[in-house]
């Protein structure tokens, strides 16, 4: 190891944060860029399935809460893009990678939001799963990412509560509303479990990420935490658990659960879910339609600057 590498590993082992100006191995930099930009893209693409229901929200209060939530998500995206830029990549480069498919986003957003219940399910289960992961990432080794997570987690807990509350209203409502809640739970439960990624034995980036403390807990441990916390929440809603194999294991102190459909997981990851094409096309279309607006800003600013220079001269 070079002295630089030794110093880097010393910091990692001492739980010191790595800061933007610190020396870091290229592979570490790439790994953190991959993870952070993926996180930012997830916030941005996540606006689509939820935005799908803003105009149809069934009450004014729900409409306001959803607008506020989607605004938060966009804000998280912006914040994370900025934090990722500290690693020497631009937002334009990240967006290009997203649109070309070389950067990923959370696969869960490739599932369609078919009913109002899905908005609740996303808040409760998807944001809930994200929080489990993000709480762990508050201790990640890259300083700007860890600090972003502390800030974002606060808002995400509010999102999870509003999602659960929306589903609770359905579960306590008419038979059709209850059916809507059950249907949303059934469709989003398994994809939410997949959000933690493949089993640790199958995970491409896990080992190195753990060593560098980018990742603090394993995919399976985090998933188990989420499974355990979700069981009583489903019971309180009075809904049926989507996993017939769910069973408390006294010895392990955890719930045992059924097998995840990894074939579906890889199929969606590889671009063949319901909405993969739609989500990217939507993003590209909005970006391209906005090109003339961005050009206008540049032209306007150039004119103003030219005037300033003229006035000074």
């Amino acid at each position: 190891m070079t002295p630089e590498e030794q110093n880097f590993m010393r910091k990692i082992n001492a739980e010191d944060k790595i800061e933007p100006k610190d020396w870091m191995p290229d592979a570490y930099r790439k790994n953190v860029i991959r993870q952070m930009s993926q996180h930012a893209h997830s916030e941005v693409i996540g606006m689509q399935p939820e935005g799908n229901w803003i105009t149809r929200a069934p009450s004014l209060r729900r409409k306001a809460v959803l607008l506020s939530k989607v605004q938060d998500e966009a804000g998280h995206g912006l914040y994370l893009y900025s934090a990722t830029e500290t690693l020497g990549i631009t937002r334009a480069e990240m967006i290009e990678a997203l649109q070309q498919g070389t950067a990923k986003y959370a696969s869960i957003f490739n599932y369609p939001t078919l009913t109002w219940g899905d908005v609740g399910a996303i808040g409760w289960l998807v944001d809930g799963a994200a929080i489990v992961n993000q709480v762990s990432l508050q201790r990640t080794s890259y300083g700007p990412y860890a600090r972003a997570m502390i800030r974002i987690c606060k808002e995400e807990s509010f999102h999870q509560r509003q999602g659960y509350e929306a589903l609770l209203a359905l579960a306590k409502g008419s038979p059709e509303q209850k059916q809507m809640a059950q249907d949303s739970l059934n469709r989003f439960y398994w994809p939410a479990l997949m959000m933690f990624g493949p089993h640790d034995s199958e995970s491409a980036h896990s080992a190195k990420s753990m060593e560098w403390k980018i990742k603090r807990e394993t995919n399976d441990d985090l998933r188990q935490k989420f499974i355990d916390q979700t069981v009583p929440q489903i019971e309180f809603l009075g809904l049926a658990h989507p996993d017939p194999a769910i069973k408390w294991n006294e010895e392990r102190g955890h719930y045992d659960h059924g097998d995840i459909d990894w074939e579906e997981f890889y199929s969606v990851i590889n671009g063949n879910g319901h909405c993969n094409r739609q989500r990217i096309e939507h993003h590209v279309a909005a970006h391209e339609e906005g090109a003339w607006v961005r050009d206008a800003i540049t032209a306007y600013n150039d004119k103003k600057n030219a005037n300033k220079i003229k006035n000074v001269a």
Binding site: V70, Q71, A286
Partner: peptide, 17 residues
């Protein structure tokens, strides 16, 4: 609100929301 996720850039999605 119809602009959310359709704006020319992210800051405008936020502003519209």
């Amino acid at each position: 609100s119809e602009w959310v996720s359709y704006a020319p850039f992210l800051e405008e999605d936020i502003a519209y929301a």
